[in-house]
Computed example of a mutant assay.
Amino acid sequence: MIDDLYSARILMLAANLPHAGRLAAPGGTGERVAKLCGSRATVDVTLDDQGRVIAFAQDVKACALGQAAAGVLGQAVIGAAAAEIAEARDALSAMLKSGGEGPIGRFEDLRVLRPVADYPARHASTLVAVEATLEAVNQALAERTRLAGAA
């Protein structure tokens, strides 16, 4: 069963992290830490006028599972709106914790992490990048609203 957990696909995703680093002037930043293992994701985003991600950077220090989730996220997040990211997070969480089918659409590749469901101690690290991304997008949206109200 451990071979399924660390499949070649998961290890490939973990090794190839798109958009690694930080943005110079992000519209929003999110950070999540998995308390059990210390996996950490810091994500910066910039949004377009419709609230979709147009720039994305991630600094992820996590196990192979957290890195793999961040790899999928980095491949698919450009063009995503907050609702899509929230749906992906909820579907990933349900897949890990309650036998859900997993994300659909642009984030469907997160389904490769289905074997993690059998390892509850690894759920939080698998979710850190997605949760940090949603936090960053929500922060960028809130800042936009604050600035519009101040104008």
Rank of each mutant, 00 (worst) to 15 (best):
M1E: 12
M1W: 09
D4V: 03
D4H: 13
L5F: 12
Y6W: 13
M12P: 00
L13D: 04
A15E: 15
N16L: 12
N16Q: 15
P18D: 13
H19V: 07
A20H: 14
R22E: 14
R22D: 08
L23Q: 11
A25R: 15
P26C: 10
P26E: 09
P26W: 08
G27Y: 02
G27P: 02
T29R: 15
G30E: 08
G30M: 07
V33L: 15
L36A: 15
L36N: 10
C37E: 10
C37Q: 09
G38T: 12
T42N: 04
V43D: 00
V43Y: 01
V45T: 06
T46R: 15
T46I: 05
T46M: 09
L47P: 00
A55G: 09
A57G: 07
V60I: 15
V60F: 06
K61G: 09
K61C: 06
K61H: 14
Q67D: 07
A68N: 05
A69I: 04
A70T: 06
G71C: 08
Q75E: 15
V77H: 03
V77R: 02
A83G: 02
E84H: 04
I85K: 00
A86G: 01
A86M: 04
R89H: 08
R89P: 00
D90I: 01
D90K: 06
A94T: 07
L96H: 02
S98I: 01
S98N: 13
G99D: 07
G100R: 05
E101Y: 02
G102Q: 04
G102N: 05
G102W: 02
G105V: 12
R106K: 14
F107Q: 03
F107M: 06
E108W: 02
V112L: 14
L113I: 08
L113R: 02
R114S: 10
P115Q: 08
D118Y: 08
Y119Q: 09
P120Q: 10
H123T: 08
T126E: 07
T126V: 05
A129G: 09
V130S: 02
V130R: 01
A132G: 10
A132W: 07
L134K: 00
E135G: 01
A136E: 08
A140S: 08
T145A: 15
T145Q: 15
L147T: 07
A151C: 11
A151W: 10
